[in-house]
Amino acid sequence: MGKVVALPVRPRREPLLPNGVLGMLLFVLAEIMLFAGLISAFLVVKGLAVEWPPVGQPRLPVEETAFNTGALLLSGAALAWAQARFRRAPSTALRPVLLAVALGGLFVCFQGVEWVGLVREGLTLRSSTHGSFFYLIVGLHALHAVAAILALGWAALRLAEGRLRQDTFASVQLFWYFVVGLWPILYWQVYF
């Protein structure tokens, strides 16, 4: 199946953004609205509470997460570095991409450890709206991070095989920058 062949070659439109990048950009816009809805809901419910965090609920580990945030931001920087090297010589970009994957993996694993601690301290999905929102918002972000890490890993594989195209790489990068850029906002809104 697929495209019908043997059409006369004619000058096609030079797109402003390649298909994959534009599609990913639109997807990211929809995702931004999803998280904006969650943050708004969180603020409204928080505004309803007399005390925050609610009585008997643990404080979120702000300091440890600051370290974690740093790891994620560094991973974004590593990917930007990879792009700079990719432009000159694609094969040299592999190591920074793997660094970005490793730092992203560190972020997710660290968060998993943090969650285990919080559940032990009594913050669960059902214990209060605080817990519900925390696990929903941070968990959804973590899911996105895992998906983005898988996409990056796939890109690294293609890069190692020398088959990664610039527009594919750009759309994967766009998704990762979304995951990285969203996190400080969530950190600021949810943890403080």
Binding site: M33, L34, F35, A36, G37, A41, L140
Partner: peptide
Amino acid sequence: FMLSVGPLVAGAVM
């Protein structure tokens, strides 16, 4: 549609 559906998906999950 793309710009408005996110908050409802958030609400639906909640």
